[in-house]
């Protein structure tokens, strides 16, 4: 009887839990306004915000999936991505007066530079701080990860100082482009989806179809067996860090364009949310990380808009706790060696 209840709760309790906020406020909107435009806008804004979190969460989950390490420095790699992007677009002369074509080409180039910088940095971090500790107790690389996180945070602090810095709103992020069924779609929303969706789709295709992607999955499941089958485990792990870092770089540029403010501490805050998203979706699970990011984005927006911004962090983490209670393996289940 107890087991049945547990199973039912696990299966449907979670869905009910996730639907509580949208349903309650949807009903309120219907009662007050006669339509669902309010809650639809909240959810859409949440998906757009969550898309950036999802890009960062992918990096956490890839690394955890393959070497079972929580790479605490990943949030800071994302922050360096933002800083690099802003510095680079300044270097090539992108500004508020740039033409549309110049802006598109310049930002594409900036995207490549940010992805390459963060990918390269992540590979170096793995090589220096994690690989020498691969056979060591799990706490050792965890501490070096925390150490790397602080080092990168201080680099950011020295680079741009301790205060948030407003950057040029190159894409006029908050200008509305069009309205669909009462949902206002801004340039920032379009940017978040235009960067995140193709990258996540490409990444999923790479991991599931490409030879190197299969090597990644094989290494994640059993490194020793993978090595015996001729897979170069070290290269595969480096590749994982490269891809995770590239995603963080893309998120860094998107964040700078989307929020138009950058600061050295943004990596801690966004990293914490992204890690939460990865755990919520099922650590090691690529689709889970994306789903977790989108859900956290929606919870944040509904809380900010309907409840109070003061309560948002508490509400997000209350959801995490409840989801863990109902479903300890995360929404889509863990994909790690421990989880089988």
């Amino acid at each position: 009887m107890g087991a049945t209840v547990q199973e039912l709760l696990s299966k449907y309790g979670l869905i009910a839990l996730l639907l509580v906020l949208p349903v309650v406020y949807g009903i309120q909107d219907l009662r007050d306004d006669g339509n669902l435009a309010g809650i639809a806008n909240n959810l859409f804004d949440g998906l757009s915000n969550g898309a950036i979190i999802a890009l960062i969460a992918v990096g956490y989950t890839l690394v955890y999936g393959i070497i079972e390490l929580i790479n605490f420095a990943h949030g800071e790699v994302f922050m360096i991505g933002s800083f690099t992007a802003v510095a680079f677009w300044g270097l090539i002369g992108l500004g508020l007066g740039s033409s549309v074509i110049g802006l598109v080409l310049g930002l594409l180039l900036t995207l490549l530079v940010a992805m390459a910088t963060c990918g390269g940095m992540n590979v170096m971090i793995e090589r220096v701080a994690y690989r020498p500790l691969r056979g060591a107790p799990k706490l050792a690389p965890l501490i070096t990860a925390v150490g790397m996180s602080f080092i990168l945070q201080n680099v950011g602090l020295l680079w741009l100082g301790g205060s948030p810095k407003s950057v040029d709103d190159l894409i006029r992020a908050q200008d509305d482009l069009f309205t669909v069924i009462g949902i206002n779609v801004s340039r920032a929303d379009l940017l978040a989806f235009a960067v995140t969706v193709p990258l996540v789709v490409l990444l999923t295709l790479f991991v599931t179809r490409a030879r190197l992607g299969k090597a990644m999955r094989a290494t994640a499941q059993d490194p020793e067996a993978a090595r015996l089958m001729g897979i170069n485990v070290d290269t595969t792990i480096s590749l994982t860090f490269l891809i995770g870092g590239m995603m963080a770089g893309a998120a860094g540029l998107t964040y700078a364009l989307y929020q138009t403010t950058i600061w050295f501490f943004q990596g801690f805050q966004a990293g914490l949310l992204a890690f939460t998203a990865a755990v919520m979706g099922g650590i090691g699970n690529l689709r889970g990380a994306v789903l977790g990011g989108l859900i956290i984005g929606c919870i944040q927006q509904i809380s900010d808009n309907r409840i109070s911004p003061s309560w948002t962090p508490a509400i997000v983490f209350a959801y995490l706790i409840l989801i863990m209670v109902f479903r300890p393996q995360g929404l889509l289940g863990e994909e790690t060696r421990e989880a089988g």
Partner: peptide
Amino acid sequence: NEGIDKAAANFRSFAANIKS
């Protein structure tokens, strides 16, 4: 009169709220 989370990435929902 809302207290804000100073580390929040943005305050667009708050802005939409006061607009309404």
